[in-house]
Design a binder for these strands. Structure first.
Lengths: 233, 233
DNA sequence: TCCAAAGCAAGAGCACTGCTCTCGATTGTG
DNA sequence: CACAATCGAGAGCAGTGCTCTTGCTTTGGA
């Protein structure tokens, strides 16, 4: 895959990469709104106009950061699921949830970039949709395995339209979860980010102090809500 | 309450109000990031430096808008609860949820301002905490009434620390809900805004199409999850 | 090997931003 | 009436994203 490339091309991707790295540093420091192309260029010892050779606009640079961020949470969730014991779907589910939360707390500004208010006038390009679904795929994977082991209780979702949406979605993602379960999982997916977002964005300030425990219980309930069951001991 | 005030003072609050109104218009149009003091001043026929007599900084103007936004969602939720039939807590709960969702969809940028990523370097002043809790209070009210009518099933929350947080919170808000119920409600509260936020911020694009129905079921499940029960027919 | 073409950094410049400061004019009050 | 507080206007500062032009360097083909 790693084709041999000319010196120029190699230098180009290298510079583009260090621009992104510096941008990510500033993003982590001060947030997306304060990310300045000029400051990035300055820090890299180049003039601001030179930077436009690598990223045609601020939005393009942000898009690159967005894709990386989606990949980072996604892979964190995947790794957490892979590392969790295969036997108990509820444990696997909460492991994925905790991974998302941990990543979000460790990278609040990157989290805000992808799950917070969208940047003004910014439309997510197609390129982001793939990485954006990695967390969802990980969660769906847990539910599918549970279903295979007979540990996914049937939980109906009484709406033909919603079930149709769910079926379409499962097909598009190339997965095989039952539509009703998929519909409930979609809700749980959104609700998970409600929990994480409130904590990251400070809405739990002076409201919840025992946050890890609170989240753990809430996440487990979320998993049980979509029908996940622990194996009988 | 409405004290008689001098002409100057009256003019002052009037101007401050029209600044806020124009700012809200621009916020609704383009989002918080694109809200420009200079543009507001321009639209009002004044010079930008004059505006600083009324709002010492952009953040102060934003704070005023934030308070108004919290009040707007809060009152929408309160009115929805008041208008819903008193007999069925689940219906009352979902009515509040729908009110929040409707308001959010109608005012996406204001929603983003209060429940999206916090503006960089902006710390919510004390003055916002009151209005910020109105939605939560409305939801808690529904749960309390349900408990009074015997329609709140006991739903434990197995964590002493979390229960202590919940108890503290209930006391601070001057309410009387059972701590375990409060803990679950806190989670449901955050999850509700997960559902709403994902829809408003476009995360449901190409994922959920039957959104009203989807939300309705999810919100009802949320209510049942904290123990709300419909009265036996 | 030579040369045109493409890629690149640099600088100047445009229109915009939040914010500060100063300077007169206006206003309400002692 | 006089004085002090308040106010609007303007200039100005430092910063932003982005464009365009000017030369220099690297590259690939004749």
């Amino acid at each position: 895959m790693t084709r041999v490339t000319g010196a120029r091309e190699r230098a180009r991707t290298e510079i583009a990469e260090s621009i992104k790295a510096e941008a990510r540093r500033q993003l982590a420091d001060a947030g997306a709104a304060r990310l300045s192309l000029r400051a990035v260029a300055r820090e890299l010892g180049m003039v601001s106009s030179a930077l436009y050779r690598y990223y045609p606009s601020r939005d393009d640079l942000l898009t690159a950061l967005i894709i990386d961020a989606y990949d980072a949470v996604g892979s964190a969730a995947e790794r957490a699921v892979a590392a969790a014991p295969a036997a108990d779907p509820v444990v696997r589910w909460t492991a994925a949830c905790h991974a998302v939360r941990r990543w979000a707390l460790a990278h609040p500004h990157e989290y805000a970039l992808i799950y917070g208010s969208p940047v003004p006038g910014y439309a997510a390009p197609e390129a982001t949709t793939g990485p954006a679904s990695r967390v969802a795929r990980a969660l769906i994977g847990v539910a599918e395995e549970a279903a295979d082991s007979g540990l996914l209780a049937p939980a109906p979702f009484e709406s033909a339209d919603v079930l149709r949406d769910a079926e379409q979605l499962v097909r598009r993602l190339g997965m095989r979860l039952h539509p009703a379960a998929m519909a409930r999982l979609t809700a749980a997916w959104a609700q998970l980010f409600g929990l994480v977002g409130f904590e990251v964005f400070g809405q739990f300030h002076d409201v919840v102090h025992a946050r890890e425990e609170f989240f753990d219980r809430a996440a487990a309930d979320l998993g049980r809500g979509i029908g996940l069951r622990s194996p009988a001991a």
